[in-house]
Design a protein around this nucleic acid. Sequence first.
DNA 1: GTCTATACACGGATAGAC
DNA 2: GTCTATCCGTGTATAGAC
Lengths: 211, 211
Amino acid sequence: MIGKSASGQSGKAAPQTRIQRAKREAILEAGLTVFSEAGFRGATLDRIASEAGLSKPNLLYYYPSKEAIYEALLRGLLETWLDPLQAIDPMGEPVEELLGYVRRKLQMSRDFPRQSRLFANEIVQGAPRIMPVLEGELRGMVDRLAMVIEGWIAEGRLAPVDPRHLMFSVWSLTQHYADFDVQVRAVLNADDPYPGAETHLELLFRRLLTP
Amino acid sequence: MIGKSASGQSGKAAPQTRIQRAKREAILEAGLTVFSEAGFRGATLDRIASEAGLSKPNLLYYYPSKEAIYEALLRGLLETWLDPLQAIDPMGEPVEELLGYVRRKLQMSRDFPRQSRLFANEIVQGAPRIMPVLEGELRGMVDRLAMVIEGWIAEGRLAPVDPRHLMFSVWSLTQHYADFDVQVRAVLNADDPYPGAETHLELLFRRLLTP
DNA sequence: GTCTATACACGGATAGAC
DNA sequence: GTCTATCCGTGTATAGAC
């Protein structure tokens, strides 16, 4: 299970030299690549090890199991992932605050597509490991934001929308460009879909949200 | 590879009794369930066989390999999947035609969530088997539709939008409710997200598309 | 056509030398 | 800490009896 302890370091608080930290980092980096491409079951320790430049047993010296690497990745993911949501300012101008959120989220798809796909893989397959976080932290954050949005609507500073479905729209539209990347590129027959995407999403949300 | 031959029956044109058809059908049905939940590698013949009420060797009598079942499913998927796109009428009223497409697509997410997730799994992991279809048929259909949409915009019957990114928006918004189902339910803490989704998407696209 | 038994490869994890 | 060798479970696929 995920999200129970704050530090991901197994509690032992071992001294941790720089070189150890570096190798653990390399493993997570490799794991991110492999897990995001193949999903949990599709990934192999062989590939992760070779990608990280380590032998398989050596990799298992740093992380005790495949599961452990995967869970460490999910844990790390959640912080950066939920961050942009926190950055929405209830005191700001509603439409601009939400558009800023959309922009940050789209940028994350461009800059961290592997993280997005890792998350997508986990959810599509039923979120076997990350479900508690969805029902706990995520729902809590969305509930809080929903109240803010409803306040904005009541004040007439935002067009009336269902706040939670609005969130789903932001997530799906932005993450689509990372998760369905190959399809997007195949259809567009172009290299970088993001300039077009940014313009399109700005237009879409401005039209939806402007009172 | 997918989409080369029209019939999925391996060319032998064997007589095919009703009972054989029924078993092949049961296998595909079971395969859809298992592959959509676990992805290609995560699925096992054991689970598919037991789900279909067959022994494993018996299953392999009807389909020669795991790959064969998977490819048969992808092939079958594409027809129903691209169908709603074909149903858009260039002679109809633009906003209503596109809203109809959105509605049909959302209904497919509700009625065939396993198909949606099967497709999502395939694409997220780089579309190793279905890429040719994306670059061929899908791109072709989107290109044709894009011209229709551009015509509508030129006539002032539709607000100016990038036609291809509009398609991405329809796909991501509607399929999100099938693919990220567990997340949607976790956040909403409710059972059936679809009534809310339909209202929301109708509002969203009407606002976006009305000139 | 359908079963039991089994071959065989792959992958996660461990043992133990260095 | 890092390696080589290896164990062993799981999973695809086949052999061969019925």
